[in-house]
């Protein structure tokens, strides 16, 4: 290889670069549109199926929305803290430990008083 001895004209290289990145963007845009359509279609089909099936099990919508699939909400006792803060704390613990949330079990999330130190919760 001889340095700076071009094997392809700059104009051609630039054209390939522009076409290349444009095609990548176009394919990904196509996939993004497809994801949106797929999600809508699946939701529609699932909605139709649910309508046909008699609504026997009493499941509250709030519970189904807040708990992701495969994650057991369990019975976390919240003491002096709200659900949102508890969710953030649990997510941080999962991230820091490198253990997925569905494999962790939390017993309680408690706001500590200023004079309380340590405490392995």
């Amino acid at each position: 290889m001889k340095l700076f001895e071009m094997k392809m004209p700059l104009s051609e290289a630039l054209a390939i670069a522009v076409i290349g990145i444009s095609v990548v963007i176009m394919i990904l845009a196509l996939i993004a549109v497809f994801i949106i359509l797929l999600s809508k279609a699946v939701r529609l089909v699932e909605g139709l199926v649910k309508k046909k099936v008699p609504a026997s099990p009493a499941v509250t919508p709030a519970a189904t929305q807040s708990v992701p699939e495969g994650i057991n909400s369990g019975d976390v006792e919240l003491i002096g803290t709200d659900e949102k803060t508890a969710a953030v704390i649990m997510a941080i613990v999962s991230e820091k430990c490198g253990i997925p949330l569905n494999r962790l079990s939390f017993k309680s999330v408690r706001l500590m008083d200023n004079d309380e130190k340590g405490g392995n919760k």
């Binding site: 392809m8 700059l10 390939i16 290349g20």
Partner: peptide
Amino acid sequence: MFFGAAAQFGIFFTLCAASLLG
């Protein structure tokens, strides 16, 4: 998805650079 595409810009920039270098 669009960020994933934009972050491939280095591939095509380097293609030009490597080609220029011979």
